[in-house]
């Protein structure tokens, strides 16, 4: 049984259906990508999984248990951790204190007084932002803040990592290092579910990819399968005459570059 199962989740805001019958899984030791154009409902899916948004219908199962109605913090305690597309770092604390707070929380009230600074430093080191440890979190670059959010997750040793556009703000070499970190984390047994716009990164590191288009999963499969899927190209390029798609840009180029460029 997969670690995370999202079953037929529907989210409606007024008359707008943000997520429609979404169904996908994420499992240990695998990196799962959730991609799709802006406004396709990816972040809403994350909110449903973590409990920040209650679905109109459908269910979320985590570790074999139905958590659809479980409170946000309880899901976290069962091993979910997430980062945010719009940063949610604790701006007035230092980078180190950000991670320390996460460890305080993860340690429970029994461990309140014993937050080990070694574990904090280890997490900072792991994502490669030790040099920023003493800086206030609202004064560091966006990419670094995203890594900080990841470090904050890692210190609690979660089973499932939900990463919302983790690489935006990173330069090319940082992105490469980040990809390697993800692979290493997965090989240690973590399940990673990632919303990402950098197609090169997604195609390189992901084991499975689900493509979301206006709220519906239109395609699931390996990177190669997704790349070749006609519906995916339509989703990214907009409805265009099919022959034009073929003449203008090669299918592979279309999925690998255009989304990264324009969305």
């Amino acid at each position: 049984m997969p670690l995370l199962e999202v079953n037929d989740v529907v989210v409606r805001f007024g008359g707008v259906t943000a997520v429609n019958q979404a169904r996908f899984t994420a499992d240990e030791r695998r990196i799962t990508g959730l991609i799709g154009p802006n406004g396709a409902g990816k972040t809403t899916c994350f909110n449903v999984i973590t409990g920040l948004q209650r679905p109109t219908s459908g269910s979320v199962r985590f570790g074999g248990r139905d958590v659809t109605r479980t409170a946000v913090h309880r899901r976290a305690r069962r091993g979910m951790a997430r980062t945010f597309q719009r940063l949610e770092a604790f701006g007035s604390l230092t980078v180190r204190d950000n991670v320390r707070v996460a460890l305080d929380i993860a340690g429970g009230f029994g461990g309140l007084m014993r937050s080990s600074s070694a574990r904090v430093d280890e997490a900072l080191d792991r994502v490669g932002i030790s040099e920023y440890a003493a800086e206030r979190a609202d004064s560091i670059p966006t990419g670094t803040a995203r890594l900080l959010e990841l470090a904050r997750c890692l210190v609690g040793d979660p089973k499932l990592l939900l990463l919302d556009e983790p690489s935006s703000g990173l330069d090319e070499s940082e992105t490469d290092a980040f990809g390697e970190l993800l692979i290493a984390l997965a090989s240690e047994g973590k399940a990673i579910l990632m919303v990402e716009h950098d197609m090169d990164l997604v195609m390189t590191v992901c084991d499975d990819i689900h493509v979301l288009d206006f709220g519906e999963i239109i395609c699931s499969g390996s990177p190669a399968e997704v790349r070749a899927d006609a519906r995916v190209q339509a989703a990214y390029l907009g409805a265009s005459d099919t022959d034009e798609t073929q003449h203008d840009l090669a299918p592979l180029d279309a999925t690998t570059t255009i989304p990264a460029v324009t969305s």
Binding site: N38, G238, A239
Partner: peptide, 13 residues
């Protein structure tokens, strides 16, 4: 600004 966000391609057209 992002007229097409979250809309079906046909409607975007």
């Amino acid at each position: 600004d992002e007229l097409s966000m979250g809309l079906a391609p046909l409607i975007v057209e």
